[in-house]
């Protein structure tokens, strides 16, 4: 498989705290990767660091996406290159409708004009798939949305923006089984041979509904073990203790 994302020896800190420590990861086209790990292992940091969230600082290493070095690229440039991140707690933005937000984002990412009527239809169809309430796209972005509605709205954006790589940061956390099913449905709708998915999670429920190629265990800012979907089952049964280095 040709490589889509290559992370080489990546270290990063937030304020003075080192969170990622020489992390390496390769993701190829058509692959679904899962990163699991205990709380505080650096899982969400990884997503934010790839996207150059200004709250984090890279201290070493490289991030190559689709052959391009994006280590120091700006967040918006990374997005336009085709990387998407589903937020754990998406921001509420008043006065901007979901529809207008997606329209603007889609125009920025494709560099092309997006026609109102076409997008309306497309969004309505995807909202139906995700069982989102009709008219939600007219509401202010995430304002007053329930946890589940926010997550579905992230998946809706993923479907609309159609990135090459989607990083889903704890998209399943805090959701009931029905909501997880719909989110998984959205992920399966999105997935094809040309794109890839990186799922960051601490639960295995969502993995039962998706075909996963690789499972990585992240502990103390490092990937300590990589396996296949069987690994997730093992973790569900035995926890992370057997993977902790030096314990």
């Amino acid at each position: 498989m040709s490589s889509l994302l290559e992370i080489k020896n990546l270290s990063a800190k937030v304020k003075d705290k080192q969170i990622l420590d020489n992390l390496n990861l390769n993701i190829g086209k058509g692959e679904v990767h899962v990163i699991m790990g205990p709380n505080g292992a650096g899982k969400s940091t990884l997503a934010n660091v790839i996207f150059n969230n200004p709250q984090y600082t890279k201290t070493s290493g490289k991030v190559i996406f689709n052959g391009k070095d994006i280590t120091n690229a700006k967040t918006d440039e990374i997005a336009r290159d085709g990387v998407f991140m589903s937020f754990q707690t998406p921001e509420e933005v008043e006065g901007i409708s979901v529809f207008n937000f997606i329209k603007t984002a889609k125009q920025k990412i494709t560099g092309q004009n997006v026609y109102f009527a076409d997008l309306r239809k497309e969004i309505a169809k995807n909202m139906e798939e995700l069982e989102m309430k009709p008219g939600m796209d007219n509401r202010d972005l995430n304002v007053g949305f329930s946890g589940g509605e926010k997550k579905k709205n992230e998946i809706l954006q993923m479907l609309e923006l159609n990135p090459r790589l989607a990083i889903l940061d704890e998209t399943d956390s805090g959701l009931d089984v029905d909501a997880i099913k719909l989110v998984s449905k959205g992920i399966n709708l999105f997935k094809n041979d040309e794109n890839a998915i990186l799922i960051i999670t601490h639960s295995t429920k969502i993995l039962e509904m998706l075909k996963v190629d690789f499972v990585h265990i992240l502990i103390d800012g490092k990937i300590v073990y990589t396996g296949n979907s069987e690994l997730a089952k093992e973790i569900e049964e035995n926890g992370y203790n057997s993977f902790k280095v030096g314990e």
Binding site: T75, D76, V93, E94, I96, I109, D140, L161
Partner: peptide
């Protein structure tokens, strides 16, 4: 800053993100 980052992660430049937040505020 979080909202700016969120909007930038969807391909909006920092300026566009701020403008969108301000327009929303004025909406």
């Amino acid at each position: 800053e979080k909202a700016i980052f969120y909007l930038m992660s969807r391909g909006l430049s920092e300026e566009d993100a701020k403008a969108m937040i301000v327009r929303g505020f004025a909406n």
